[in-house]
Design a protein around this nucleic acid. Structure first.
Lengths: 329, 329
DNA sequence: AAATTACGTTTAAACGATTAAACAATTAAC
DNA sequence: GTTAATTGTTTAATCGTTTAAACGTAATTT
């Protein structure tokens, strides 16, 4: 890397102090600077292609204009879609984004948080893994500006932007009921993540409100990150009940894929609803309804909250966005 | 953000100079430091949860341990998949990754490059958009360590990691021929991007070597980023020739999707091969062969080259990886 | 004419680390 | 017993910025 041009180089060439160069290039001290010399400084700066060293600037002003983004896995469509929105919002406000994937592991997440804080990020956007309560609490205590997305911790009064999962699941089940389905199963997760439990609760509420009895056998739980193996078994289970299901609600895009693969192979045609869309929906013979998260709104809101938090003029905000049910008949 | 602990704080508390604290915590000057005081410094550092300010360190040692990743769009699966691999490789070497999406636009790409360089990244991984020649040349002249991925510029002797697109396309077409196809069309791009032209050339070469005449009508070109509108038309064109095609090679995952959607809707069953896999392949009745890029190798090689370049011990390297043809019958 | 204000610029400290060189205080060498 | 080497620590400069305060000089006020 070639030696870069610094304020000093410009100052020397023009024959003034670095302070003056700094003032001129930052348009400070309006009116107090000689027109002549200002012009000359700007000219020399341009001719040398001067670009300020942001590291030095960051150290001095104690602000890096960088935000850290921690997702479960950047190669997952939900995460990368979110990343893209955060990126755009951040850049439009003069921020740069560093990112890392936690793989849903709390130790990795902690490592990333530490790394980012040591790099003096101005704030964090975090999609927290299961069991991150302690970490989140510590962030809060250390007054690090941050905002959670997709997931939240009800007992912690920290910034978060999620969808109303309870309502979303409820509306999906209601739709299945309206379509005449009565034996509605669900593929859920065995997890302590509240936002997923909310989805399960929404499913139960919908059935209860419709006066449909919900047998425990209709609710199958699989392990996070083990979808490929466990979902087909779970679906098979739902199909082989004495009273087989006539519809299934899938809790996530990661469960619906192996689920559909199985149903497709078995040539079973039942009602299907899912959280989040995947490309394959367009290609399947049966219509698949899904809950569409307003990803753009989520990302934009998250960054908005974060930036206001960085600027120290906002208290904690918990946002629950309304998800849209895309109803395919 | 709470005031963070600095070397000074530790030094004061222990009653020594910051220099000594620095030496101790970095394990410098082995054996020259008093055991007693070293222990005390480490203890105090730990009790205060000292974490070094990387910004200050970066300024001093002129190294940020950060690399910049510029892709077309982080929400595109190819880009996010690559991002994940780069991330893992980078972190395992103590580097952090900042990223940006160029949207295939040269102006955005230039802006990102400038932003990243001002932030003193140690190097760049770039998926360059069409027409980036000038930018790349300037990076090279300024001796910024960088490596191109996926795309290259034959006339520029700079680091790059790609697949052998010519060979890959050829093998795909050869396979179609072996399956008995004779009227093989291709959906290609109207572009100056060499790696895409290579794919086209590979297609032509395969036909020529097999002694099959390649009419110009068999090669349809669409516009980058306009796949959704143009590909269906192009496919329709290939099917309505006086001698319709019995197979199509798609140049990318972005073209194969609308193509398949159209073919599926029209219930046409012909041979299909494509670059890159998409999730939907598993769900379609017809077998679809595809060229699988060794994404992991590409990412790992790119980072390896970049790091060696940063450490100043390697000349420019152009790598062409072998892609794998996944043959579904 | 002395005192004040304004103007244009420089000085110098600071941000938080690293590190060569200097410095006492011991210990070893001859 | 003087000199030299070793040991443990500090001093101070440095990285490239920013910015409050100081500083002359000129213009204005009284």
């Amino acid at each position: 890397m070639k030696k870069r041009i610094s304020l000093k180089d410009i100052a020397q060439k023009v024959g003034v102090s670095t302070a003056l160069v700094s003032y001129v290039l930052n348009n400070r001290m309006q009116g107090r600077i000689g027109e002549e010399v200002a012009r000359k400084i700007k000219k020399v700066a341009a001719s040398l292609h001067y670009q300020p060293n942001q590291v030095a600037k960051s150290l001095k002003i104690n602000k890096t204009n960088t935000i850290g983004l921690i997702v479960a896995d950047i190669s997952n469509p939900y995460s990368s879609g979110l990343a893209r929105i955060i990126e755009d919002e951040a850049y439009s406000h003069g921020y740069t984004v560093i990112f890392g994937s936690s793989d849903e592991r709390i130790d990795k997440c902690e490592l990333l948080v530490d790394t980012f804080i040591n790099r003096q990020v101005d704030g964090l956007v975090v999609l927290p893994p299961e069991g991150a309560d302690k970490l989140i609490k510590s962030l809060h205590k250390r007054k690090v500006p941050f905002v959670l997305v997709d997931r939240y911790f009800p007992e912690l009064p920290v910034n978060s932007v999620c969808i109303d999962n309870h309502e979303a699941a409820k509306s999906a089940v209601n739709m299945l009921i309206k379509q005449g389905k009565r034996r509605i199963g669900m593929i859920s997760y065995n997890t302590s993540l509240i936002h997923l439990q909310d989805r399960e609760e929404g499913y139960k509420t919908a059935l209860k409100e419709a006066g449909i009895k919900m047998g425990a056998k209709l609710l199958k739980k699989v392990t996070l990150s083990k979808e490929e193996e466990e979902v087909p078994l779970a679906v098979a289970g739902l199909l082989s009940l004495s009273q087989p299901v006539d519809a299934i609600l899938f809790i996530s895009n990661k469960t619906v894929l192996p689920g559909l693969r199985y149903l497709n192979a078995q040539q079973v045609d039942i009602g299907i609803a899912s959280f989040d869309k995947t490309e394959i929906f367009d290609f399947l013979p049966m219509p698949i309804s899904y809950i569409q998260q307003p990803l753009h709104q989520i990302g934009a809101a998250a960054l908005d909250i974060l930036l206001k938090n960085i600027a120290r003029r906002q208290k904690s905000t918990q946002l629950f966005m309304e998800a849209q049910l895309i109803n395919k008949v």
